[in-house]
């Protein structure tokens, strides 16, 4: 196995540990579905609007709904202020997220409509697109859009030769030896295939499949958190329980 069990990370995590994950649904009451997902200090929120009529008309698809994702960082979510508005990085990630999510959404049920997925990062400490995908997947589910699965996403990567999970910004900036590799992966929870793969760094060809296997394993944990959060959101709150009595 490529993971070194005894490898100690700067923040005390083991190689295979993601940062503490928190999730919540219904964070934006206006939206048809919404969710927050956090890996440690990285916090993403997502809202889903739709299916609703797509304008202009020529963008409509008469056979299925259009899934339209928008990912961006809030200006104050990073060290140096980010100029508001999407840059090329954000545009690329938005498209990659569309492809990450679309395999599980049953778009054929809603021809000529659009399903808008808006993802924003409140606080960034690496792993923003993965947190965003986890939030968006839950928001789609909460919106009641028919889906075949939830999508789970995690970054795996390396510091020098050590395979690690869910890199923090400090680990992403690691420069010794083979340096840092950041490999963002997403997959439908119940599939062994990947719907998002984006990487840069240095990783040997033999290690790439090891990295995706490791990602699959961590995705199981994320799936459980997503399911539990969605289920719990349907339970009556303490207040509602009180009102019934």
């Amino acid at each position: 196995m490529a993971v070194k069990k005894d490898f100690k990370r700067a923040d005390g995590r083991k190689a295979e540990d993601a940062r503490p994950m928190t999730a919540k649904v219904g964070v934006i009451p206006n939206a048809d579905g919404s969710a927050m997902f956090a890996f440690g200090d990285t916090v993403a929120i997502a809202a889903v609007y739709g299916p609703r009529k797509l304008h202009p008309q020529h963008m409509q698809n008469p056979t299925k709904a259009v899934l339209r994702c928008n990912y961006d960082l809030l200006s104050f979510s990073v060290g140096d202020r980010k100029r508001p508005g999407p840059n090329r990085r954000a545009q690329e990630i938005s498209k990659a997220i569309e492809w990450a999510l679309s395999p599980v959404v049953d778009l054929s049920l809603f021809p000529n409509t659009v399903i808008d997925v808006q993802i924003y990062i409140l606080q960034a400490d690496a792993g923003t697109r993965t947190a965003g995908i986890n939030a968006a997947s839950m928001a789609l589910a909460q919106a009641g859009i028919p889906m075949t699965d939830l999508v789970c996403s995690i970054a795996v990567g390396k510091n020098d030769t050590n395979l690690i999970v869910d890199l923090s910004k400090g680990e992403e900036d690691f420069e010794e030896g083979e340096g840092a590799t950041d490999f963002a992966v997403a997959k439908p929870a119940n599939s062994s295939s990947f719907s998002l793969m984006q990487m840069d760094g240095k990783i040997s060809p033999e290690l790439v499949p090891e990295a995706t296997k490791l990602a699959s394993k961590v995705c199981e944990e994320i799936y459980e958190i997503q399911k539990k959060t969605l289920k719990d959101s349907l339970l009556p709150s303490e207040q509602e329980k009180g009102a019934k009595k």
């Binding site: 492809w99 395999p103 439908p188 599939s191 295939s193 990947f194 984006q198 990487m199 840069d200 760094g201």
Partner: peptide, 20 residues
């Protein structure tokens, strides 16, 4: 030694562990 430096998936279909 050969070293992979970047990776990006494009499009709606998925890639399986075996294909990777």
């Amino acid at each position: 030694k050969p070293m992979v430096n970047s990776c990006q998936k494009y499009g709606e279909d998925l890639f399986s562990q075996e294909e990777i």
